[in-house]
Simulated assay, not measured.
Amino acid sequence: MSDRKKWDELRQEALSHPDAQEAYEATRIRYELGRTVREHREALGMSQAQLARAAGLQQPAVARFEAGGTMPTLPLLERFASALRLRLHVGFEPLDRAS
Rank of each mutant, 00 (worst) to 15 (best):
E9M: 10
E13H: 09
A81L: 03
R85Q: 09
M1N: 15
D96Q: 07
T36S: 06
A63L: 01
G68T: 04
Q48K: 14
P94D: 08
L74M: 13
R64K: 15
R85Y: 15
P75C: 02
M71L: 11
Y24M: 08
T73I: 08
L88D: 00
G56R: 11
L77P: 03
D96F: 05
F92G: 13
E39K: 05
F92Y: 15
F80N: 00
M46L: 10
Q21H: 04
S16V: 04
K5C: 07
L84N: 03
S2T: 15
G91D: 02
S82R: 14
E42I: 15
R97P: 02
D96L: 10
A55R: 07
A20Q: 14
I29Q: 12
K5H: 12
H17A: 07
L15Y: 02
P75E: 00
Y31K: 08
D96P: 09
G34E: 01
Q50W: 11
M71F: 13
A83R: 06
S16A: 11
V90E: 01
A63R: 12
P18V: 15
A23Y: 09
M46Y: 13
G91S: 03
Q58G: 03
A63F: 05
E78G: 09
R35Q: 14
H17Q: 09
V90M: 06
M71Q: 06
F92A: 15
E22T: 10
P60S: 12
A20E: 15
A55I: 02
E66Y: 05
L74H: 14
A54E: 10
G56S: 03
V90Q: 10
A20D: 12
R41H: 05
A98G: 04
E78L: 01
A14N: 02
G68M: 06
L77A: 04
L10S: 11
A83Y: 04
K6A: 12
E93L: 09
Y31V: 01
R30A: 15
P72M: 00
P94A: 08
L10C: 03
Q50F: 12
R35G: 03
L84Y: 04
V62I: 04
K6I: 12
G45E: 11
L51C: 13
T27D: 12
S82P: 11
A83E: 08
L86M: 09
L76K: 03
P72F: 06
A26F: 08
A52C: 01
A67T: 08
F65K: 09
E39H: 12
H89P: 13
Q48R: 13
S99W: 10
R64S: 06
S2F: 08
G68Q: 05
D19H: 04
D8S: 13
W7V: 08
R41N: 01
F92S: 08
D19A: 07
F65R: 07
E32Q: 01
A20H: 14
R53E: 15
G45N: 02
A43S: 15
E25W: 08
H89Q: 10
A26P: 01
R4I: 10
T36H: 05
